[in-house]
C-alpha cells in the first residue's frame, strides 16, 4: 500500500524502521477509479497525492478546453500546490486516467510532519526541487525547440506516458492541437 512511497523516500534519505512507522501513521491509503476526480477547480486542495499505482492528470479548463499541466504516473506526486499551501480555491482539476492507488497526505498531517520529522522536510524540499527542474526543462524545450524535437524529447523522457496516455492529451500537454501533433508524428515515422 505504501511500498513505492517508501522506496522512493529511501532512494533519497535513510529512514529507520521507527521513522517509517511514524511517517506511515500520517498517510492515507486511497483508491480512485478511472475518470474520477481527486480535485475539482474551485475547491480547496486538501491533500498531496503520491501515485503508488495508476495514472492521474492535472489540468486547467479555459473556455471549455482542457490544458494539461501534469501527468502523474507511479512514483509521482500531484496537487494544486498553490491551493494546498495557501488555502485559496484550486485553479487545477485532477482526475484519474486509470484505476489508481494513491497515498494522500492532508494539510494538517503535512504540517505536523514538517514540524516533527526533519527527514520529511528534507524529502519535501527534494521533491519540490525535482518538480521545479522538470518544469524548467519543459518550458525551455517548449520555448526554444521545434515541435518535432519537443515531441522526441517528450517520448525519450516519458516513454510510459506515451504508451498509456491518449495522443490528444499529449497534444494538450504540449499546447498543440491534436491535428498538429498527429502530423508531426506521421512526419517522424516517415523519416525513419
Amino acid at each position: 500500500m505504501y511500498d513505492l512511497f517508501f522506496k522512493k523516500f529511501r532512494e533519497r534519505i535513510d529512514l529507520s524502521p521507527e521513522e517509517e512507522i511514524q511517517i506511515k501513521s500520517y498517510l492515507i491509503p486511497k483508491k480512485i477509479r478511472r475518470r474520477q476526480y481527486l480535485l475539482q477547480e474551485g475547491d480547496i486542495c486538501k491533500h498531496i497525492a503520491f501515485v503508488e499505482k495508476g495514472a492521474l492528470r492535472e489540468y486547467s479548463i479555459e473556455g471549455g478546453t482542457e490544458h494539461i499541466i501534469l501527468f502523474a504516473l507511479e512514483g509521482w506526486t500531484v496537487a494544486d500546490l498553490f491551493s494546498f499551501l495557501t488555502g485559496e480555491p484550486a485553479v487545477y482539476t485532477i482526475d484519474a486516467l486509470e484505476d489508481s492507488e494513491l497515498v494522500l497526505i492532508s494539510k494538517s498531517s503535512h504540517e505536523e510532519l514538517l514540524q516533527t520529522q526533519p527527514k520529511y522536510e528534507t524529502y519535501m524540499r527534494l521533491l519540490i526541487t525535482d518538480a521545479y527542474i522538470a518544469l524548467q526543462k519543459r518550458l525551455t524545450s517548449s520555448i526554444s525547440l521545434p515541435i518535432e524535437e519537443r515531441y522526441k524529447n517528450f517520448v525519450e523522457t516519458y516513454p510510459d506516458i506515451v504508451q498509456r496516455v491518449p495522443q490528444h492529451m499529449i497534444a494538450s500537454y504540449m499546447g498543440l492541437s491534436p491535428e498538429t501533433l498527429s502530423r508531426v508524428r506521421k512526419k517522424m515515422l516517415n523519416q525513419k
Partner: peptide, 26 residues
C-alpha cells in the same frame, strides 16, 4: 535552510507552473 529553500522553491514552482500553463493555453 531546508525549510527556507523548500518555501522559496515552492513559490518559484507555482510561478513557473503558471508560466507553463500560459505557454500552452494563452
Amino acid at each position: 535552510l531546508d525549510r527556507i529553500f523548500k518555501v522559496i522553491i515552492e513559490n518559484k514552482f507555482v510561478e513557473l507552473q503558471n508560466q507553463v500553463l500560459q505557454n500552452i493555453s494563452s
